[in-house]
């Protein structure tokens, strides 16, 4: 006799998964928003900065990119409060971590986007008498946004999936909900199958939305 599939207990506890998914989306959305802000500000700073500014930004990017996300989550949740004696909740800690993580990746995305804005467009902006800030706001950023949308979509999907790591510090997001149900019901196959479907479908919906946006804003050069 093999393992008998039964989903009844999964549906009975489905609120853990649906609630978890909502929290995952929330964590991802907030982290992406903060990360995008960090990334944008640092990218703009980078392209106009001198040696020192560039070194600092590169150090941040390289540090984050070379530390596993799981370890970063532990560092910020367990390490930091111990070291500097402050306290914060697990969700706040995770959002802070994922924002810093997203920021490091998005600096690179935005920086290459800013560099990819055709020089002729910047010349046209200069020639008509726009100031450096006006050129940034009316020419460079809108063009960059269109260039970076495909790369942004990929980063956003990755970050959504990365929220599952929050389960290690007991943030009740989707993966944590799945673990909770598994511990209670031992329906390991069913619960992880359903959870996988939820991740895949949600990821696909996000991607679909972003692709629509891309098509709307495609760069014509």
């Amino acid at each position: 006799m093999g393992y008998q599939l039964s989903f009844t207990q999964i549906w009975a506890n489905f609120d853990k998964l649906s609630g978890g998914l909502l929290l995952s989306l929330e964590l991802a959305l907030i982290s992406i928003a903060i990360g995008a802000l960090i990334g944008l500000v640092l990218a703009i700073w980078y392209v106009s900065a001198g040696r020192i500014g560039r070194t600092l930004i590169s150090a941040y990017v390289e540090f984050i990119r070379n530390v596993p996300l799981l370890l970063l989550v532990y560092l910020v949740f367990y390490g930091l409060p111990t070291a500097v004696n402050i306290a914060y909740s697990a969700p706040v800690s995770f959002v802070a971590t994922l924002s810093l993580y997203a920021g490091a990746y998005l600096v690179e995305v935005f920086r290459s986007g800013l560099d990819a804005v055709p020089k002729g467009l910047m010349d046209a902006g200069k020639a008509m008498g726009l100031t450096p800030w006006q050129r940034l706001i009316y020419v460079r950023l809108p063009t960059m946004t269109r260039i970076t949308l495909p790369a942004l979509s990929n980063t956003f999907i990755s970050l959504f999936k990365d929220t599952s790591i929050a389960s290690v510090i007991a943030v009740p997001e989707l993966t944590y909900g799945a673990q909770w149900i598994n511990n209670k019901t031992f329906r390991i196959v069913e619960v992880y199958a359903v959870t996988t479907v939820l991740y895949v479908v949600t990821g696909y919906v996000i991607l679909f939305g972003l692709r629509l946006l891309e098509r709307r804003f495609r760069v014509e050069r």
């Binding site: 055709p118 002729g120 467009l121 010349d123 046209a124 902006g125 200069k126 020639a127 008509m128 008498g129 726009l130 100031t131 006006q134 009316y138 020419v139 809108p142 063009t143 269109r146 804003f217 760069v219 014509e220 050069r221």
Partner: peptide, 30 residues
């Protein structure tokens, strides 16, 4: 410099129109 450059107009070999703006908006920006 920006104010001074506004005194000259330049037309480029490769057009260099802003791709996200319509014809009218390209003209209106300056």
């Amino acid at each position: 410099l920006a104010g001074m450059r506004a005194e000259t107009g330049m037309v480029f070999q490769s057009f260099n129109l802003f791709p996200h703006l319509t014809a009218e908006q390209n003209i209106m920006l300056g």
